[in-house]
Amino acid sequence: MSIIVNELNYIYNPGTAMEVQALRDINLEIKDGEFIGIIGHTGSGKSTLIQHLNGLIRATSGGIFYNGADIYDEGYDLRTLRTKVGLVFQYPEHQLFETTVMADVSYGPKNQGLDEKEATLRAVGSLNAVHFPEKHFYDSPFELSGGQKRRVAIAGVLAMKPEVLILDEPTAGLDPQGRDEILEMVSNLRSTQHITVILVSHSMEDVARYVDRLIVMNGGGVMYDDTPQAVFAHYKELEEVGLMAPQVTYVMHALAEAGIPVRTGATTVAEAKDEILSVLC
């Protein structure tokens, strides 16, 4: 079970003066249960890539295989693919539209053809999964706080029972606690429901803390694809493409330069703390 991206290219407005190559020779294999981060500056191709993964955009050339099947085959059921690969867009709360939270979350499953009862069950299950408080199930989604709205929007995607969950900047605009809650929740979903998670983020600190594998996009291509530690070791190259390493990585490098013999690989506060203590104490 996996997603294989093979020699993928995508060109916006081909053959016109506005032609832009948004994706360039992308090759990836995303295995079941992975927690992957995608980083890249604005316009690097992150969003275009993830929209290919559930068939929203069709590649100009190259292929995508979901669980061994070519999604561009004639007769391939793209509708089902879109429920299997759930995509949570940026600011998903802007897409809430129903009068109650429950109606909003069960809209997707109903659209899949489930009856009222099953759809409601799915909605309850996914609202519980995102730790949304039961007493607000029948409130209007528009009267919730930003963090709660976002949970409802994510629950709406989870109610489709996806096998892969892709989140495009799920924490933008949230306060530190809201940010931690959403990321903890996603991390839990992955371990308890065995969902593959792909997290697109501008927060280097967040990806360093949560993901096992980090893909760096630049100019429509994959620049790095490795563990966060290995990727952030290239902090100088990352700066040239609009990115950075987490602050603590810079601390470790500066310490090493100042003559304190620390290993510089730390990307989280916990790792940095352990390394500094092991050298200084």
Binding site: D175, P176, Q177, E205, P246, Q247, V248, V251, V269, A270, A272, K273, I276, L277, L280, C281
Partner: peptide
């Protein structure tokens, strides 16, 4: 109050808690 501190501040604080 559900807020955070800059990462460097947090690291320094954690190190202090550990006895530095």
């Amino acid at each position: 109050h559900h807020l955070a501190v800059p990462q460097v501040t947090e690291l320094a604080w954690e190190l202090k808690q550990s006895g530095l």
